[in-house]
Each structure stands twice: as structure tokens, then as C-alpha cells.
Design a protein around this nucleic acid. Structure first.
Lengths: 145, 145
DNA sequence: TATTGTTATACTCTATAACTATA
DNA sequence: TATAGTTATAGAGTATAACAATA
């Protein structure tokens, strides 16, 4: 097997940036009526894996300002997908938690995106799918996750 | 070396979707005043590599509607980064081209993002950087590019 | 009639700034 | 005084719908 030269961090940065922007646009175009957006799904996924969190902590984790995260949570709360709970010791803080309905709807309301993505992945070879599976946690680590 | 089991397309789809959303938010948070956004950079990069394109073709390539691409181009034109040229045979169509100024400014006006991304990449091992370099064209292929 | 582009309007996601309540 | 959250406002990026010009 030939030994490929080390990739340049500069080139990887430029190309990866464009590639993820492109994929996000393509995913957004698949969102059907009544489905959840990427920002909503991301906040819900984090609440499910991490447990109840405050607006400020969620905002830090998602790399947005607390006011921006407040808007995302405000779009999920009336639908019953997340709920607020008082903080046990600090009256200023509010803990947001994914509801049982939220757990269920998170999957149901992202079916179109999910199906599109799985179809696109099915066109890759086994080896290529392995490469993407290995790259995914690295992309998360770049983002500080 | 142990042979890792085949990754599930379903799980890769879910995780990759969240990972790229996260990276896009993190990148957006690095954009300084006067710098170009991801959408602007993506359109400019495509015009540079592909040559002059119509609004409709650019929109298709970027997976947005023609009206949306029109807005992006309208943000670049007054700054002199792109220019319009008449289509040689079809009076309805307008070709947009990256200007020499656009070529130069594309790099200068994304320095903060670029530096953040290169710093983040520098924390990876050689092997991990190779994995990301190999994954980048696959991500582009998922998006149809 | 079909296609390209533009204009008008609206929604999501994000930001900054100013405010309220609690520590 | 400092911190958590909310409200008000704005800008970018997207969408749909209606329109004008050209093929």
C-alpha cells in the first residue's frame, strides 16, 4: 500500500469547512413540514444524553449565546418536548429536561432527514462508511464536544 | 489489529448529523466583524473553482432555492466580490463571476475562522488528521458534490 | 407556455443590549 | 455586585408566493 503524504492542516480546514456547510444545507433542505430542525434536535439530543441542564450550560455546549438557546427552548416547550424544573438550591437557575414525549418525538419528527441521510450513506463502500464513522467523533472533538 | 465491526448506517447518520451541526455553530461563533459567512465563502469557492455560473445553477449546487442564492449574491455584489455578466445566448440568464478582488478577499476575510480551525486540527494526531482528510470528500459526496 | 430572475413576506437561528430577579 | 434568565431588536439565511422579462 502506498504511503499517502501528510495532509496539510490548512487544506483540511478549508475543505472540511466547506463540506460541513454543504451537508448542513443539504440536510436542511430535507426537513419536512412538522419536522424538527437541526438546532432543535441537537439541543434535545444533548438533554437526553446529559440529563437536565440550564439554558447557560446548554448554550455553552452548543456554542451559542444564552439568549439564542432560550429561543430554541422556547420553541420546544409549548409542544411539550422539553419541560422546566426549578433548580434545587439556586432560585435564579432553571433546569430544562427532555420529556418522555420529547424522547419519542425526537426520532419520529426527523424521519425525512434521517431517511435521506441513510440513503446517501448506503451509496458508500464499507470502508468509506468506516472512515466516516471514525471521523464523526473527531469532528465532535474539534467542536470541543 | 482488532477488526472493528461494521458501523450501522443509522447510527452514523444520527451522529454525523449532530457533529456537523455542532461544527457549523462553532465556526459561526468564530466569525469576526467584517468577515465572510460560510454561505458567502461557499458560493465564492464554487464560483472560483467552477467559473461563472447562473443563480439557478449555483442554487442547485448549494442545495438552496434560487431566491436564497440571489440574496447571498446580492450581499457580495456591492462589495465588488462578484460581478454579473450577460449570458451570451439567453437574455434571461445572468452569469455571476468571482472578481479578482473576490479571489483575494476570500482568504483575507476568513482569517479568524481559518485560524481557529487550524488550531483545533493541530490538536489531532497525524493518523486522526488523515482520517478527517479522507472523510472530507466523502462528506462532499453525501451532499451530491 | 416554460424558464430566469426579482420583489415581497415570513420563519429560524443567531447576535447585542437592556431589563428583572435572585445570590 | 455578579449571575441567570427574559424581552426587544436586528441581521443572515433560508422558504413560499407573486411578478416581470425572455425563450
Amino acid at each position: 500500500m502506498p504511503c499517502s503524504p501528510d495532509p496539510s492542516p490548512h487544506d483540511v480546514a478549508v475543505e472540511l469547512k466547506l463540506a460541513v456547510g454543504q451537508l448542513v444545507r443539504r440536510l436542511r433542505a430535507q426537513i419536512g413540514s412538522g419536522e424538527l430542525t437541526l438546532s432543535q434536535l441537537s439541543a434535545m439530543a444533548r438533554l437526553e444524553s446529559h440529563g437536565p441542564m440550564t439554558t447557560a450550560d446548554l448554550a455553552r455546549a452548543e456554542a451559542v449565546k444564552p439568549q439564542s438557546m432560550g429561543a430554541v427552548l422556547a420553541s420546544l416547550e409549548p409542544a411539550g418536548l422539553v419541560e422546566r424544573r426549578p433548580h434545587p438550591t439556586d432560585g435564579r437557575q432553571i433546569l430544562f429536561a427532555l420529556t418522555p414525549l420529547g424522547v419519542k418525538e425526537r426520532h419520529r419528527r426527523s424521519a425525512a432527514q434521517q431517511q435521506w441521510m441513510e440513503t446517501a450513506l448506503s451509496r458508500l463502500s464499507r470502508k468509506e462508511l468506516h472512515t466516516l464513522a471514525a471521523a464523526t467523533p473527531l469532528i465532535k472533538r474539534l467542536s470541543g464536544g
